[in-house]
Structures are given as structure tokens and as C-alpha cells.
């Protein structure tokens, strides 16, 4: 199986084939022999070249996995080469409105701009509060506030869209 994997800035081809007790994985210049046993719905014991690694893998949506290990939490995207090709051909990252999402759950305690306002990169747009901490959500691009998607006192989940800058 050929796959494209993405983690943070990194994007790589990954080749994977079935073995008796798991998989042989070729990633970049390295080959890993991985013995797989599942301890629960999400917990895996991976023996990678004999070394034990305990990880939890949870599928967030099609092709997006959250991996929790001793080193922390990683979001990994996996797609087959065709999907990848189709996406890059369509240029999904092409200009247009920038959708800004909440990077943490919380409550909207303040909205600092109005729709139609011109804003500069780094300017605060919305203030979120969680766990006694206020966090200002800023825009990364300069432009016009096209749409405010939340109201004051509204509770949001991590990942919820907050506003659009065009």
C-alpha cells in the first residue's frame, strides 16, 4: 500500500506491506518491521524493530488520526496518492477567505471588531476564555472582516470557525 503521510510541516511517501504479525513500513530512507497488537479500542502495542512503543490512535475523521504517545499528541493526516494528487491539482490552499478557527474550547468574552472592518495581520479579533485564562485570537492576514461567525458569550469547541478574513 502506498500512502502519503503528513505531520506538522512534514509530508512523506510511506510504503506499507503486511507481514505475519504486522507490517513492514518504508518511510523515507528507513525501513521498520512493526509487530502490532491491540490492547483496547485505541491502545496499540507496537514492537518496532523489537522495541516496544505504546501508542493510542484515534480516528478523528476520514484520513485524520490523533496519535498519543509518551512524546505527546500528534495529528497525522493520511491519504492515498490519488486523493493527494487530486487535492494538489485543485489547489486547495488557493487564496480566498481565511477561515479562522478556535484553537481551544472556551467562551467568547469579547469581539474586538465588526464585520466590514479592515484589519491587519496580528490584530486581535476575538477573545476566548477558558480555565481562567483569556486568549486573544488574532488574524494572520491583512484584509477585511467578511464574517463574524460567533457572538459574545457563545461557547465554542476547539476547531469551531470564528471569523472570516477576505
Amino acid at each position: 500500500m502506498e500512502l502519503i503521510v503528513r505531520h506538522q510541516e512534514r509530508e512523506e511517501e510511506l510504503h506499507l506491506e503486511r507481514t505475519d504479525s504486522g507490517y513492514r513500513i518504508v518511510l523515507g530512507e528507513l525501513t521498520y518491521e512493526v509487530d502490532v497488537a491491540r490492547a483496547s479500542d485505541t491502545i496499540h502495542s507496537l514492537l518496532i524493530d523489537g522495541e516496544q512503543h505504546e501508542v493510542s490512535v484515534r480516528r478523528r475523521k476520514e484520513g485524520l488520526y490523533r496519535v498519543t504517545s509518551a512524546a505527546g499528541i500528534s495529528e497525522v493526516e493520511i491519504m492515498d496518492p490519488l486523493t493527494h494528487l487530486a487535492r494538489t491539482a485543485h489547489g486547495e490552499d488557493k487564496g480566498g477567505a481565511q477561515h479562522v478557527t478556535a484553537y481551544m474550547p472556551g467562551r467568547v468574552v469579547e469581539i474586538l471588531v465588526a464585520e466590514g472592518d479592515e484589519v491587519e495581520a496580528g490584530q486581535g479579533i476575538v477573545v476566548l476564555e477558558a480555565m481562567k485564562m483569556k486568549n486573544e485570537i488574532q488574524t494572520e492576514s491583512t484584509g477585511v472582516v467578511k464574517k463574524l461567525l460567533v457572538e459574545k458569550d457563545q461557547a465554542v469547541e476547539g476547531g469551531d470557525p470564528l471569523f472570516e478574513i477576505g
Binding site: 500500500m1 505531520h7 507490517y23 518511510l27 507496537l46 496519535v67 509518551a70 512524546a71 497525522v76
Partner: peptide, 15 residues
Amino acid sequence: GLADLPLIAAAVAHA
């Protein structure tokens, strides 16, 4: 730990 571990784990789960 292994820097590639998240990628390996996700690929295994996906497969």
C-alpha cells in the same frame, strides 16, 4: 523516542 512513531502508528491504524 522515535520521531517517526506518530507516522508509523497512524499508518498502521489506517491500514
